[in-house]
Simulated assay, not measured.
Amino acid sequence: MSNREAILPKSSERHALYEAHGYSAAMKSGDLLFVSGQVGSKLDGSPEPDFKKQVTLAFENLKNVLAAAGCSFEDIVDVTTFHTDPEQQIEAIMEVKQTQFNTTPPSNWTAVGVNWLAGFDFEIKVIARVPSAK
Results as ranks from 00 to 15, higher is better:
Phe51Glu: 10
Thr80Met: 07
Val79Asp: 03
Val130Asp: 05
Phe59Leu: 07
Ala69Trp: 12
Gly37His: 02
Ala20Tyr: 03
Leu32Gly: 02
Thr56Pro: 00
Gln88Thr: 08
Ala25Trp: 04
Thr104Gln: 13
Gly37Lys: 05
Val55Lys: 09
Leu43Gly: 04
Ile127Gln: 06
Pro131Ser: 09
Ala69His: 11
Ala68Cys: 11
Val114Thr: 07
Thr56Leu: 13
Phe120Glu: 06
Gly30Tyr: 12
Ala26Ser: 00
Ala118Tyr: 08
Glu123Ser: 07
Ile90Leu: 09
Val130Met: 11
Ser41Cys: 13
Ile124Gly: 01
Val35Tyr: 06
Phe59Ile: 01
Ala20Gln: 15
Asn64Ile: 00
Glu87Asn: 08
Val65Arg: 06
Thr81His: 00
Lys42Gly: 00
Ile124Glu: 03
Ser29Pro: 00
Thr110Arg: 10
His21Lys: 12
Trp116Glu: 10
Phe82Asp: 02
Ile127Asn: 01
Gln38Asp: 05
Val79Leu: 09
Thr81Leu: 02
Asp75Trp: 02
Val114Asn: 06
Ile90Phe: 05
Val114His: 02
Ser72Gly: 15
Ser29Leu: 10
Asp75Asn: 15
Gly45Val: 11
Ala111Ser: 14
Gly113Ala: 15
Asp121Ser: 09
Leu33Asn: 01
Leu117Glu: 02
Ala68Ile: 02
Glu60Tyr: 13
Leu33Ile: 02
Phe82Ile: 01
Asn108Gly: 14
Gly30Arg: 12
Ser72Pro: 11
Asn64Leu: 02
Gln100Leu: 04
Gly70Ala: 07
Val114Leu: 07
Thr104Cys: 10
Gly70Leu: 06
Leu62Thr: 01
Ala58Cys: 07
Ser46Trp: 11
Gly70Asn: 08
Ile127Glu: 09
Pro106Thr: 09
His21Val: 04
Thr80Pro: 04
Pro47Glu: 13
Ala20Phe: 06
Asp121Glu: 12
Ile90Thr: 05
Asn61Thr: 08
